[in-house]
Structures are given as structure tokens and as C-alpha cells.
């Protein structure tokens, strides 16, 4: 393996980490409500703006602005769940056909609304977020990387591990997993399914906003900045198996590496197309993804 390959692999993995941070929230929402949130990219956008404007506009230190961006995303997620998602599971037994359509329309509409609202209120200009550290390039053997990217990758690993541990072992995490497996069964066992959904949306919005904040020094905050990471997240949740958190982490890293090598060895122009083709192939031939289980109905 040549030096270029090591560099591509490391950079691909780091990109994959950011994808994972973004995709976990989408996967959790799919798990608990069986819907795809088409406004997920706008949670990312909200975080990028919150971080950039709080840090630059108010002069708050970046280490305070970063968690604030998480909270801001969580707030938007909570509002979304309370105002728009409740009809999905209140009386869900008789909802029937319109449920999927409603979810697509309402999240798609919310996405357009947030993009255009920010475009009008804050303006269409791109804002560059302040980097966490000023070291512009660090050389590690054959790998060349910016200090911010390296630090952000470390933070991403920590946040992903904390999230995965919370889902796996915490009380609320167990509730969330129970509701994902069987909403009716969980509610019969005394779990507040509405609260579990709220928590998932807050976590999902917070994580997406957090990744937006982390990446804002690299990808400037602009109204439509969320479209690109959102599409990556859709690809990842399909590849990893809809609703599977470990699956989406593995799929994120894989996609990061595939794109990093593909851009060099296959085609640079179509680097964003590889994942989309994978998404279609998976949906057609292996809809349960790499790690997902085939549907278990009770």
C-alpha cells in the first residue's frame, strides 16, 4: 500500500466519521417512527449557523458555541416532533395508507421552509465557522491533515461512542430500543412512547446540528448546506440497515473510504454518484441493509 493509499484511507475514514455523526440520528428516527426525515439536512444547517453566528456574532468561545449548537438542534428537533410527528403514532393502528405520504410531504415541506426562511432572514451568503484550533496543516507520516479536521474527528469519535453507549445501556436508550422493536408492546409495558419519540428527535436534531457545527469551518454555513450531508445520510441508513445504529456507523466509514478512493481512481466528477448507485442497488436487492434484520412482525 503506497503512501497515497494511506492518505486516502485516513481521510476517507475521517469523512466517514462525520457521516456517521450525521446519520445516526436519521437511523434512530427511522427506527422509532419508520419514516425518513427529509428535513434532516436542515437540522445540520441549523447547527452550522448556530455555531457560526454564536461564535462570531456574540464573540462566545468556540468551546461554548459547540454545545450550544447541539442544544439548538435539539430544540428544533423537539419542536418538529411535537408539532408535526404526533399524528404518525396517535391512533397509528388505523392510519393505514396515508401515513408514509404524510411523513414524506411534511418533512419535505419543513426542509424547504427552513432553507428558505434562513435564506430570507440571515441571507444567502456563506459564513465560515471559526476553526477549533489554528494549526492549518499537520503531517503524520504520509498523511497531511488540517489541525481542525483532526481534532473534529477526535470529537466525533467521542460523541459517536457516547451516543452508542447511551442507546445501548441507558434507561432512556433501552426505552427507545423497545419502542423501535414494537411500539404497541412497549406502550403495554408502560413505556411513554410519545416521550421516547421526543427524545429521539431531540437527539437526532442535536447530533445533526453538532456535525454541522463541527464541519462549518470546512464547509461554510449557507441555507442549502444541509442537502449534501442529508443525501449521504440517506445512503448510509440504507446501506447500514434502516434503524440499525452499528450498521450506520460501519456504512459511514465504508462510504467515506469508497468515495475517497473512487474520487481518485474512478471519477472525480461522479464522486457523489457512487453512493447513490449503491443506495438504489441496496434498496432493490437487499433492503434490510448490511446489518438490518428482515422485518419481524408481531
Amino acid at each position: 500500500m503506497g503512501a497515497i493509499s494511506v492518505d486516502l484511507a485516513v481521510n476517507g475514514l475521517i469523512t466517514g466519521l462525520f457521516y456517521a455523526l450525521m446519520a445516526i440520528g436519521l437511523s434512530l428516527i427511522f427506527g422509532i417512527l419508520r419514516i425518513v426525515n427529509f428535513a434532516h439536512g436542515e437540522f445540520y444547517m441549523v447547527g452550522a449557523y448556530a455555531y457560526t453566528l454564536i461564535a462570531l456574532g456574540l464573540g462566545v468561545p468556540v468551546w461554548v458555541a459547540l454545545p450550544l449548537a447541539f442544544l439548538f438542534g435539539a430544540l428544533v428537533g423537539w419542536i418538529t416532533e411535537r408539532t408535526l410527528m404526533r399524528p404518525l403514532y396517535a391512533g397509528y393502528t388505523s392510519w393505514g395508507l396515508m401515513r408514509d405520504e404524510y411523513a414524506v410531504i411534511v418533512t419535505f415541506g419543513l426542509s424547504l421552509f427552513l432553507i428558505n426562511l434562513v435564506d430570507k432572514v440571515i441571507g444567502p451568503y456563506a459564513y465560515r465557522g471559526p476553526p477549533l484550533v489554528d494549526a492549518s496543516r499537520i503531517v503524520l507520516g504520509p498523511v497531511l491533515i488540517s489541525g481542525h479536521r483532526l481534532l473534529a474527528a477526535g470529537i466525533a469519535i467521542a460523541v459517536i461512542l457516547i451516543t452508542a453507549a447511551l442507546i445501548k445501556w441507558s434507561f432512556w436508550g433501552k426505552q427507545i430500543r423497545a419502542v423501535s422493536q414494537n411500539r404497541l408492546g412497549a406502550s403495554l409495558a408502560g413505556i411513554d412512547t410519545a416521550r421516547a419519540s421526543s427524545i429521539v428527535f431531540m437527539l437526532s436534531g442535536g447530533l445533526a446540528a453538532f456535525s454541522g457545527a463541527l464541519l462549518s469551518p470546512v464547509i461554510n454555513a449557507s441555507p442549502d448546506v444541509g442537502a449534501f450531508p442529508a443525501i449521504k445520510s440517506y445512503i448510509i441508513v440504507v446501506l447500514g440497515g434502516m434503524g440499525s445504529v452499528p450498521g450506520s456507523i460501519v456504512a459511514s466509514l465504508a462510504l467515506g473510504i469508497i468515495e475517497s478512493f473512487g474520487a481518485v481512481y474512478l471519477s472525480y466528477q461522479y464522486r457523489d454518484g457512487f453512493g447513490l448507485i449503491l443506495l438504489m442497488l441496496f434498496l432493490l436487492f437487499r433492503p434490510q441493509g448490511l446489518f438490518g434484520e428482515k422485518g419481524r412482525e408481531v
Binding site: I35, V36, F38, A103, Q269, Y270, G273, L279, L283, L284
Partner: peptide, 20 residues
């Protein structure tokens, strides 16, 4: 494919075509 799966597949078809 139905519901979210159909929406995602057609969305990626749309994006691929636009990229092309």
C-alpha cells in the same frame, strides 16, 4: 418499494440524472 423506500430510490434517481 413503498413509502420511504420508494421516495429515497426516486430521489437518488433524480440526483443521479441531474449529476449526469
Amino acid at each position: 418499494l413503498t413509502g420511504p423506500y420508494l421516495a429515497l430510490t426516486t430521489l437518488s434517481f433524480a440526483e443521479i440524472m441531474r449529476l449526469v
